[in-house]
Amino acid sequence: MRIYIIISFLFLSISSNAQKQEVQKCIESFFEGFHQRDSVKIKLVCSDKLILQSISESSTKGNKLSDETAKEFYKSIATIPSNLKFQERILSYNIQIDGTMAHVWTPYEFYINDKLSHTGVNAFTLFKEKDFWKIIYVIDTRRK
């Protein structure tokens, strides 16, 4: 009996790890497309009903919540000047999964032309659609 419990626990642990790797790969693909200025690649891992929001934090101007449509987001990615160097460095992944929903918390540093521009956290919500994870919601914080 004890061996069955151990085997069951190992199977659940392996399955959970595989799910987390799939979710992380989805987020990594999102950022690959972002850094390549490739909105088509980003769309592959995003839902058609993608929701985007940002929270700008400022001690002088106050905090501001802003919304961006998916169409505006994809256009902004595709029109980033080719001479602008930028990188969003993901510092870690905290992935939580319940069935067909996943939540990913990713602290980051954002660099423009190798200079730190701002820091914050991304929070992604994903939905498992058929056999693929899709990003349905992104909110991030931004602070100088």
Rank of each mutant, 00 (worst) to 15 (best):
R142W: 04
Y93N: 06
M101K: 10
S66R: 15
E57A: 08
K85E: 15
T69S: 12
S29R: 07
V45M: 01
M1K: 12
S16A: 13
H103E: 14
W133S: 05
L12Q: 08
E88G: 14
G120E: 00
H35S: 04
A18I: 12
S56Q: 15
F73E: 03
F127W: 12
I5S: 04
F110I: 05
F124R: 08
E88M: 09
K134W: 07
T106I: 06
K61Q: 10
K71Q: 15
R37K: 02
L44G: 07
I77S: 01
Q21P: 01
L50I: 03
Q19P: 01
K75I: 13
E32D: 13
Q21V: 10
V104C: 00
R89L: 13
T100H: 07
L10P: 09
D98V: 15
R89P: 09
I97N: 12
L50Q: 05
N83H: 11
V23S: 00
M1T: 12
V23E: 00
N113M: 11
L65N: 14
L44N: 11
K85I: 13
K25C: 05
P81S: 10
S82A: 08
N63K: 01
F127P: 00
E32Y: 15
W105K: 07
H118T: 08
C46D: 01
T69D: 02
Y4E: 03
E68Q: 13
S47A: 07
L52Y: 07
K134T: 02
G62K: 00
N63G: 00
C26V: 12
E72T: 12
T106V: 03
E28C: 15
K128D: 02
S15I: 11
F124V: 02
G62E: 04
Q24F: 08
G62V: 03
T106A: 11
N94G: 12
K25Q: 04
S66F: 14
E57D: 06
D48K: 05
I7P: 09
N17T: 10
S92E: 11
Q21M: 13
P107S: 05
P107C: 04
I27G: 11
Y137F: 11
V121R: 09
Y137A: 14
R143N: 09
D98I: 13
I6Q: 11
I95V: 08
K85Y: 12
S58V: 02
Y108K: 05
H118D: 04
S47W: 04
W133D: 00
T60G: 05
K134L: 07
E57V: 15
I27R: 08
K61N: 12
T79S: 13
D48A: 06
F132Y: 09
S47R: 02
F34Q: 00
F11E: 13
N113I: 00
R2I: 15
Y137L: 15
K41Y: 04
G33N: 07
N122G: 04
S82C: 04
E88L: 03
E68A: 10
S13L: 10
F31S: 03
F11L: 09
W105M: 04
K115N: 05
L52K: 01
C46M: 01
N63P: 01
S16P: 05
F30M: 06
E68P: 02
A78G: 09
E109M: 08
L126F: 10
R2M: 14
Q19D: 11
E72A: 08
I42N: 03
E129D: 13
N113S: 05
F31Q: 02
F124W: 01
T100Q: 11
S47M: 05
L52W: 06
I14T: 11
F31L: 03
K85T: 09
I97L: 11
F11N: 14
T125F: 06
F73Y: 10
